[in-house]
């Protein structure tokens, strides 16, 4: 089966995010004070072949770890399946 998997890379809580801070200060909170904070991350979307959701999530996590798609000291990742295609 073919799965669509998202990988979101964000700075960990407590690690500064100057891009988010700048957008918050100069754009979002100037738009309306209802915006309380802004964080910026990186978004990757994969189409992955596999037999189950758990399997492809694991595979994307392994890719992210082994190929240094993020720096675990600074970033956290979120991996989730957002779609799947029956396949045969």
């Amino acid at each position: 089966m073919k799965f669509t998997v998202e990988l979101i890379i964000m700075n960990k809580e407590g690690v500064r995010d100057p891009e988010g801070e700048t957008l918050q200060k100069y754009v979002a909170e100037k738009f309306t004070s209802k915006f309380l904070s802004t964080r910026v991350g990186k978004y990757l979307r994969f189409e992955v072949e596999g037999s189950s959701g758990e399997e492809v999530v694991e595979l994307v996590k392994r890719l992210a770890n082994e190929r240094k798609l993020y720096n675990p000291l600074v970033h956290k990742i979120e991996v989730r399946v957002v779609g799947q295609d029956g396949g045969d």
């Binding site: 100057p18 891009e19 700048t22 957008l23 100069y26 754009v27 910026v40």
Partner: peptide, 11 residues
């Protein structure tokens, strides 16, 4: 300008 955060020149 503005660190080129988001996209260069956008802010």
């Amino acid at each position: 300008s503005y660190g080129d955060y988001l996209r260069a020149g956008a802010i």
